[in-house]
């Protein structure tokens, strides 16, 4: 089986500033990839390259074997941003109106919704258990519920890949856990997932691969391999799988937890 996404020798600059340098990795069907790295490491830039929003200055990206410059089936890729551009709690839109916009990626000239689109919107909301909120205004929902709506927007076209850019920023820990459980379910149903995160703690149980980025690709492989490396074995999310460590809330006496104030 070919790779779903192939990234070969990608380099990208903003003006004279190098943001990404010689990035090489591939993503197979069913992968759940955690993309980690410090601020300014190029994670969001790499995501935008995968979404076709930027063009790489060097290298190539292929999706389903097709070069990204020729790729047009954008319905196969679902994107969940950190936050919608103009969104505030007072934005006058119902959950249904927002989820329906996801179907625009499958439309060509006259982008009008059909009855099938309305059915697909409801199906997408059922997958994220938000079908009862169809006609509610988005601003009335909690942060976790809003992110589920954004996932439903991304799922309406039955994507093969779901790309999420720090989707749980500002969301409480219990909601984050439920959110990642949902991603795990979607991954088990066959959707490949790439999630940008500063911290893999919450999603540790589910990722199959870790890509550690800092302009260059420092590491790409399984999470176990990542945590086996001496440079990483003290990271909190590594303790969880290595030592079977579970945070004891509200305060944990594990040194890494105390240092990083993770718990």
């Amino acid at each position: 089986m070919g790779n779903l996404v192939e990234i070969k020798n990608i380099s990208f600059n903003f003006g004279s500033t190098e943001v990404l340098s010689k990035i090489n990795f591939s993503i197979s069907k069913g992968d759940f990839v955690g993309l980690i790295g410090p601020n300014g490491s190029g994670k969001t830039t790499l995501i935008k390259l995968l979404l076709g929003l930027y063009k790489p200055q060097k290298g190539s990206i292929k999706i389903n074997g097709k070069d990204i410059s020729e790729f047009s089936d954008w319905g196969k890729i679902g994107y969940v941003p950190q936050k919608a551009t103009n969104f505030s709690d007072t934005f006058p839109a119902s959950v249904q109106e927002i989820v329906l916009t996801g179907s625009l990626s499958n439309k060509r000239f006259l982008k009008k919704y059909t009855s099938k689109d309305y059915d697909l919107a409801l199906e997408a909301l059922k997958k994220v258990e938000m079908q009862d909120f169809l006609n509610r205004r988005i601003g009335e929902l909690s942060g976790g519920q809003q992110q589920r709506v954004f996932i439903a927007r991304a799922l309406i076209t039955n994507p093969e890949i779901l790309i999420l850019d720090e989707p749980t920023t500002g969301v409480d820990q219990e909601t984050q856990t439920k959110f990642y459980d949902l991603l795990h379910t979607l991954n088990k149903e066959g959707i490949s997932i790439i999630i940008v995160s500063h911290d893999l703690q919450r999603v540790t149980k589910y990722v199959t691969k870790v890509a550690s980025l800092n302009k260059k690709l420092d590491f790409y492989g399984s999470h176990k391999e990542f945590c086996s490396h001496p440079d990483h074995d003290n990271e909190h999310h590594c303790l969880i799988i290595k030592k079977g460590h579970e945070c004891k809330e509200p305060k944990c006496d594990e040194p890494a937890c105390m240092k990083e104030k993770k718990c």
Binding site: L51, G52, L53, S72, W74, I77, Y79, P81, A84, T85, N86, F87, F91, A93, E97, I98, T101, G102, L104, S105, R153
Partner: peptide
């Protein structure tokens, strides 16, 4: 409507 709500994600819809 899509670009008014979320212009950046709208770009990914083509």
């Amino acid at each position: 409507f899509s670009i008014t709500f979320d212009e950046n994600t709208s770009k990914t819809f083509g």
